[in-house]
Design a binder for these strands. Structure first.
Lengths: 140, 140, 140, 140
DNA sequence: TTTT
DNA sequence: TTTT
């Protein structure tokens, strides 16, 4: 269980790279500015590093830019590397799995994209009963 | 944005059906008992109807039973049907996308299953740099 | 653990009641229309019953109306009652704890309200060090 | 909107400090090890820095230790400070608001604590109707 | 610097 | 009984 839900605006345009090799894919990075609740205290925000891979990365590259307000779902990912001074540096990023527009700007939209699988059936009777027949109580 | 996270125990064994047709799949239903925070008030719980489709449904059938404690991630789904008295009945279920064991019972486990896609790469440098070389600062 | 996060629009104006007695409080009810991801399938939505108590209820009464787009955080609550035919009816509602505007309509806003407690300190050094002095490494 | 839900085990005992001044309070820090889904890849985990303030901090001090499995709800908080080399260092922590035991160890428990306010009424009829009378349809 |  |  590792879930993150954020609503905020991109503090900068995404930076996008493509990995090499056969399964090449987009890797987009951006910072999300998320307003804090107790806005009394100098209207501050948290500036959260986000990464989007694959389809989600392409979506970011195409539709997101500085100022775009989104609702993001993802997970926290930590890592580390050694800098040129030889110090171990620890990193914390949010991996963006879902990115949805919070403001319906009609024009700029283009929809929503994510790495999610096709949704399961969503009818009221869960596919237990033939279509057009809903006269029976579903089992509960 | 439609996310639900619940931790609780199955109040009954899952009931499992299989849909007909070519893309036949498992549909498992169960009730999750989720303890309320203010447990002072007569140790009550919420009894939440859950449905799991496909792989998640098979996982439920195989590994979950009355009393199993899980952490579930999913979404709320509403629907309706007409009962035999001709009344329109409205339903609210939680569609289980992820189901994880909360208690590591070693023996009974069998892991975790969900409809989630394969996870994106999780190395510290996000695949921007060749493996084995972490001497450069990743762009931030 | 019982968490719900929803983004959607009010499908109707909130209905508000006030409880009687000394600790009288507002109880607001509304339906939230949450678009489904696989919007290919006849642009459907889930219509989710929500209740807001106390301060959150007053906020709903004052600022929310049919069509308002919000991000809601809360929990699932189940209950039951007996109808006039003597049948036991089971209910599932989302109790709204936080309600935030998803669209910044400047004018209509009025902010955000919830039952949340005052936020804990949010400075970089967590209050371990005197203000104005950030030259020391915080313990990690 | 800034929500985090994690399930994992403390990778070390919490370190606890108390802030000075009149509104002195506990500040507990620990690392949470959260297993990744694709456990095929060398059984890795994310090691996430957490902070708990006030009551939540006291709860951590008292009941949590290395190895304890919890479900945590909170938010991401970013900050920065300047180290002795004069470099600006950026930090990302999870502020723990709720901490629940994932394994019911009966003995060691002691319950759950958080900064959450007292829960709103949770009866089926939402307090609209007098207790003992549930024969009327609640308004929907 | 990490947990089962 | 539903929203854009």
């Amino acid at each position: 269980m590792n879930k993150v839900i954020l609503m905020g605006r991109l503090a900068r345009d995404p930076e996008v790279r493509y990995t090499q090799g056969e399964q090449a894919m987009a890797v987009a990075r951006y910072t999300l500015a998320v307003d804090r609740r107790g806005k009394n205290q100098e209207n501050s925000a948290d500036f959260i590093q986000c990464v989007a891979f694959g389809k989600a990365g392409e979506f970011a590259e195409r539709y997101l830019h500085k100022g775009t307000k989104i609702v993001l779902t993802g997970r926290i990912q930590t890592g580390s590397y050694t800098n040129k001074e030889g110090q171990r540096i620890y990193t914390t990023d949010v991996v963006a799995e879902d990115q949805e527009f919070a403001e319906s700007k009609n024009a700029e939209s283009g929809g929503t994209y994510s790495n999610q699988p096709a949704p399961a059936p969503q009818s009221g009777n869960d596919g237990f009963m033939p279509a057009g027949d809903d006269s029976e109580l579903p089992f509960v």
